[in-house]
Design a protein around this nucleic acid. Structure first.
Lengths: 124, 124
DNA sequence: TCTATATTTAGCCAATCAACTAACTATAGA
DNA sequence: TCTATAGTTAGTTGATTGGCTAAATATAGA
C-alpha cells in the first residue's frame, strides 16, 4: 500500500502535478528548466523531484553540473490500468497545463541559446 | 486542475484509501461500519467522508440516523482511463486491504445481528 | 588553484492536516 | 416530552509539508 500512497501523495501537489505533466510531454527536462517553469527556488524543485523520484514517477540522470529528469512510463502500468493515462485524460486540455507547455517551449529555446544544460531533447 | 488534485489528495491518506477500496468491494457501507473498520472516532470518519465526497469519489445518503456511502464508479472514468481500475489493480492483493475485507464481513454480520443500520447490502 | 555555477542538504517558518474531545444537530423510541 | 443514539461541526494539538534562506557539495572553466 505504501508504494500506492507514495504515488497519490506525489501527485497531490499542484507543482508536482505540473512537473509530471511537463515530463509526460517533453522527453526530458533539466532541473533548471523545471525551476524556471514553476517559478520557485532551486531547493524546492530539488525536494519535489526527490518526492516524485521516490514514488517511481520520474528518474533523474546527472550530466556534469546538470540533472535531467524523465517520466517513468512503464512502472505505473498495471494490467492495462495506468495512472498516466488517467492523469493525461483529465489534464491534457487543462488551461494551466497548456500554458505550461507553451512557456516550456520558450524556456527550452532560451536554454539552447545560452548554451547551458543542452542535452538531446524532443517534445511530443 | 483543482478537481484532479481533489482526487489525488483524497486518495493520499491511508485511511481514505482503505475506505475507498472497501466501498469498491461492498456496495454500500454505513459510517458506523467504516468507523469500526478504521478504528478511529466518528468525527474523524465524518471528515474523511466529506473529503472523499467533495472529490466526487463517494456519495452519501441519509436514512434516519444513519448515513450510508457508495463509491461513485462512473465519474472517475475518462476515455477509458480509470483511477478506480488503477487503484484496484494495485491494491486488490494488498495484505491490509484483504484483511480489511475479511474484517468487514464480520462487522457487517455484527450490525445485522444488532439490528442497527441494516440497509439492503451486497458484496462483490 | 581559485572562481563561478548548478544542485542538494539542512534548518526555519507558516500553513495544512489527521487525530482527538466537546458540543451540537438530527432522528428514533419510550 | 425526555432520553438515547448516530453523525456532524467546532476547536485544539502534534505532525507534516511546501515555501524560503544559508550552507554544503559537485562540476566546469580560467
Amino acid at each position: 500500500m505504501i508504494p500506492t500512497l507514495a504515488i497519490t501523495n506525489a501527485l497531490s501537489d499542484r507543482n508536482r502535478l505540473r512537473t509530471f505533466m511537463a515530463l509526460l510531454t517533453f522527453d526530458e527536462l533539466c532541473v533548471c528548466e523545471i525551476t524556471e517553469l514553476l517559478k520557485i527556488k532551486p531547493p524546492t524543485t530539488s525536494r519535489h523531484m526527490t518526492i516524485l523520484s521516490a514514488a517511481g514517477l520520474v528518474q533523474g540522470r546527472k550530466e556534469g553540473r546538470w540533472v535531467y529528469y524523465r517520466a517513468c512510463r512503464e512502472v505505473n502500468q498495471e494490467d492495462g490500468a495506468s495512472i498516466i493515462a488517467w492523469i493525461q485524460s483529465r489534464l491534457a486540455t487543462d488551461p494551466e497545463i497548456i500554458a505550461d507547455k507553451s512557456r516550456l517551449h520558450h524556456i527550452i529555446q532560451a536554454t539552447k541559446t545560452r548554451k547551458t544544460c543542452t542535452p538531446q531533447r524532443s517534445a511530443s
